[in-house]
Every structure is written in C-alpha cells, then in structure tokens.
Design a protein around this nucleic acid. Structure first.
Lengths: 160, 160
DNA sequence: ATTTCTGCAAACGATTTGCACAGGG
DNA sequence: CCCTGTGCAAATCGTTTGCAGAAAT
C-alpha cells in the first residue's frame, strides 16, 4: 500500500510538473523520492539530507526552491506546529483531513482524523460567511505516561 | 468593560511580575499599556511602535525580551497563523477558548468561540491518551464577498 | 550596594536571491 | 539554441544576545 501510493504520488506529481511547465531534473526527482519515501515529518534541512542520500548533487537552494512546488501540488503539506522551523507532512494523500497532537514533553507528533471535527469546522466557517479552504487543528498535550512518571519514554532529543 | 478588564489585566500582570521577581520599569509599563490597550492583533514590531508612542525610550530588544514574559503570564497569546511573523493576541482574558479564521484573500482575522469545538478537542485528546494543554484551531477561508465579486472590501494592505 | 534591566549593535539561523554556468526541451 | 534549473555564496529578515552603563530594590 505504501508502495502503491508512492507510485500514484510520483505519477500525480509528474503530471503536475508537466502541466505547470516545470522541467524534470535529477535533483527534483531525488527530492521527490526523499519527500514521499517516508511517512515521517521533516524540516527543509532534513529533507536536504534525505535527498542527498539519493543524489549527492542536491543543494540546499534547490530543496528550498522545490518545496513550495510540492506544497502547491497539494501532495505535501506545510505545518506550523509551535516550533521555530516549518515542518513538512507527506501524509495528506492518504489522510487528507488529518490533524496533529503534539506532546509538550517529548515533542512527539501524533496524527489523528475525526469526521466530527471536519463537520464542525465547516459549520463554523459557513456560519461566519466563509468557505473553508484549509483547516488546521493542533493540540499540545501531556501524555498519560508523563502524568504518571514525570517524563516520556521518548525524551526530548530531536527537538528542544 | 474594556476599561474594567484592562484594570484587571494590569493588576494580574503586576502580581505576576512581583511573584516572579521581575522589576517594575517604565519601559515594561509602556509595553504592557500598549499590549493590552487594544483588542487588535499585532506583531512584535507593531508592538514596538505602539509602545514607543507611549514611551519613546522603549527599544526593540526590550519588546522582544518582554513579550515572552507576557505570554508566560497567560494574558497574552502567541499565534502562528500561516504568515512569516508571529502574531500576538491580547483577547484571551475575555475569550479564553477562542480560535481564528483567516480570510485567504484579505488576510483579515476573525475570532470565534465554539463550545462544541472545545468539547471535541478534549474528547479526541483523551481518546489518544493525552491531557490537552493548548488547543489551536485555524481555518483559512474565502469570504462570501470574495466569491461574489472576486475581491474583499478589505484589500491586501497590511499583509502580503 | 547589589542585581536586574536597558539600549545598542553585532550575532544568529532559517530562508531567499543574484549570478554565471549546466542541462532539459 | 533557448530558456529554465542549478550550486554557490552573499543577502535578508525576524529574533536573540553580549556588553557596559542605568535604574530598581
């Protein structure tokens, strides 16, 4: 399934690039491969490292120039969870309406989907006279493990 | 009412600063006055201008150093709406659980409160094994006016 | 007197951009 | 060939910080 969706991502992206008149380059291929070869979230810098593992010639500038294109294609989503750096989420193809819960203690990000949330956001938007285009919910929370022991298993390592 | 709440803000803040061992300075007073003398949202830079209108001696560094203190006090909230700069919201005293809808076209920010949203967020958090600490909902949307005429009354001026 | 605050200007870190060359159509 | 894409390094922009003097306790 992960493979199947990666196929479709590649195809959709290829069409998108062609349609927009963008050229197909080895660097962009590597970045796309890296960007959708995982279900993890990543920063621009992390994507650079991942892309370079595939094609050493990928530069930081190209990653930064390619990211907005991927976001525009709708296959990659830019997240603004409290941190200082933007985070990118490749999982919106499979779960188009998911949201995020961030553990305040270990910074772990948990994705969740909820149809009621979806419904409620639409209702609220319409009530205010708007048509929703992009809905973002982020919940910062303490996990039960933290409440019990005072720390999370997953200690603050990657972030903070 | 705005006056009454500003009084209480000043009092709460004064207590908070004293409790934390922070000193009372004319610059902080000016910043606090500026920060809670409006119901509008503002950036750090805008707060600097507002503070300087009250006390010319306020420096950018002091604003940036005071902002985290006000946020920590719980009276001021830092928002991360899509833009590149952080936005500060002084309205959480009066509406502790409000959320934001941002017009994609004119960037206008509309605040809304909804008890169902509140409830739903708590349910979802608990279901995942977490105790929510901070819940943020942001909806980006097109207004009806835009749908009808192709633009908003409030054109892109302050942002974008 | 002691310690926190302040303004200034330099430092920072993520992101962007100008340039001349490489490479896709 | 023409024009877009690229790497590099310099530039940008919001924010942070080191320092010496100013002000609060």
């Amino acid at each position: 399934m992960a493979t199947a969706s990666r196929e479709s991502v590649r195809k959709t992206l290829h069409e998108f690039l062609a349609e927009k008149g963008f050229r197909k380059t080895s660097q962009r291929d590597a970045i796309i491969e890296a960007a959708f070869g995982t279900h993890e979230h990543y920063t621009a810098e992390e994507l650079l490292v991942m892309s370079r593992a595939i094609d050493k010639s990928v530069s930081r500038a190209t990653v930064y120039r390619t990211l907005p294109i991927l976001v525009e294609s709708g296959l990659l989503r830019e997240l603004d969870l409290g941190g200082e750096t933007k985070i990118y989420d490749p999982n919106f193809l499979e779960h188009p309406t998911h949201n995020h819960l961030v553990c305040v203690d270990c910074k772990k990000i948990i994705e969740f989907e909820d149809p009621n949330m979806e419904l409620l956001e639409n209702c609220i938007s319409r009530r205010l006279g708007f048509s929703p285009a992009n809905k973002m919910v982020t919940i910062e929370a303490h996990c039960d493990e933290f409440k019990a022991s005072g720390t999370c298993t997953r200690r603050p390592c990657d972030k903070d």
